[in-house]
């Protein structure tokens, strides 16, 4: 589609001998020929550049606008970079919502929720694979079906349950219903199943019990898979919006996405976009940083979990 018929010879040298270090002069000359360079630019870099601009510019615009004073927001001749950078938008966010408390709540919910979820996923997956009981496959099937139930479906009954337990406007009320983890269990079960049996045989001869086999063998050799589950869980917990929106209405118990929702409802003026962008930066940038550092695990987890 974006490839044109004329680009045929462009990748030839690389295709035929992808690993050979010695390149013939002819191939080199061809690789750097004007025709090839033009092809690479037009069918390779140009579309990538356009795609990158579409992805990156909105985020750059957000960061830039968050440092702009109101008159630079409402101007009809906006500039990409703020002319008089200011942090007053961030101060304004802190003025409207208890920013540090909300940030703290988000971190608390994410860390506690994810830790428990990952631990439960590890132990459940281990039990499903290594502890022989009749009906384990049926239980696994039940977990697979749970994987398909979106949070919107369970929202109303869970609201009634948590409210009747006294969890309205509490952090544990935010965390508790999401703790049962089908996604992590599913992913780790697939991983544990693929572990070689020999790994555990020596430990069994030494009389190691399941607890030791789990934490001294299964967990250490599965760190990449566990990291994947943990990171995907962290991303989901941090971004979770629907449930905290329902179960909390006091600002002191809100997480960041819900706090932003509150901020949006009190800031209706066009000139306050800077404040909203400052809020968006606070919920977006932490995940961008984590993703940039650990994208390998996150991409693997998110594209593998067929039905999240």
């Amino acid at each position: 589609m974006t490839q044109r018929p004329t680009s045929t010879p462009a990748q030839n040298p690389g295709l035929i001998a992808p690993k050979s270090r010695v390149r013939h002069r002819g191939e080199l000359a061809r690789a750097f020929s004007r025709q090839n360079l033009v092809d690479t630019l037009l069918t390779g870099y140009l579309p990538i550049l356009i795609a990158l601009m579409v992805i990156v510019l909105p985020l750059a615009w957000m960061i830039s606008s968050s440092f702009k004073p109101p008159h630079e927001i409402i101007t009809l001749n906006p500039t990409l970079l703020p002319q008089e950078p200011t942090t007053e938008n961030y101060a304004a966010v802190a003025d409207r919502v208890p920013l540090l408390t909300v940030l703290g709540n988000s971190i608390y919910v994410t860390v506690i929720g994810s830790s428990i979820k990952v631990l439960l996923a590890i132990t459940t997956a281990y039990a499903l694979v290594f502890i022989r009981v009749p009906g384990a496959n049926l239980i696994f099937l039940g977990i697979l079906v749970a994987l398909m139930v979106p949070p919107e479906v369970s929202m109303l009954p869970n609201y009634l349950t948590i409210t009747s337990l006294g969890g309205y406007n509490t952090l544990w009320g935010i965390i508790l219903p999401g703790l049962g983890t089908a996604f992590g269990t599913f992913l780790l079960r697939q991983h544990f199943k693929a572990l070689p049996k020999e790994l555990f045989e020596a430990a069994e001869l030494d009389g190691a019990g399941h607890l030791r086999k789990l934490f001294q063998i299964a967990v250490p050799v599965s760190m990449p898979a566990i990291a994947t589950v943990a990171l995907v869980t962290v991303v989901n917990e941090w971004n979770n919006f629907l449930w905290p929106l329902i179960i909390v209405d006091r600002a002191e118990k809100m997480t960041l996405p819900v706090g932003l929702n509150l901020l949006q409802s009190v800031e209706q003026l066009t000139s306050s976009y800077g404040i909203l962008m400052a809020g968006a930066v606070m919920v977006i940038v932490p995940m961008l940083v984590i993703f940039a550092m650990l994208q390998r695990y996150i991409v693997a987890g998110l594209t593998q979990g067929a039905v999240k």
């Binding site: 990538i48 795609a51 990158l52 992805i55 990156v56 909105p58 985020l59 615009w61 957000m62 606008s65 991303v235 941090w238 971004n239 919006f241 960041l256 996405p257 932003l260 929702n261 949006q264 976009y273 909203l276 962008m277 809020g279 968006a280 930066v281 919920v283 977006i284 995940m287 961008l288 993703f291 940039a292 994208q295 996150i298 991409v299 998110l302």
Partner: peptide
């Protein structure tokens, strides 16, 4: 480029929506 293109997928929908609301 692959990393950059994938990145919006992991971002908060609320934050993303606010940014686009402005745009």
């Amino acid at each position: 480029a692959r990393t950059a293109v994938f990145s919006p997928y992991v971002l908060s929908g609320v934050g993303v929506a606010l940014v686009w609301d402005f745009i």
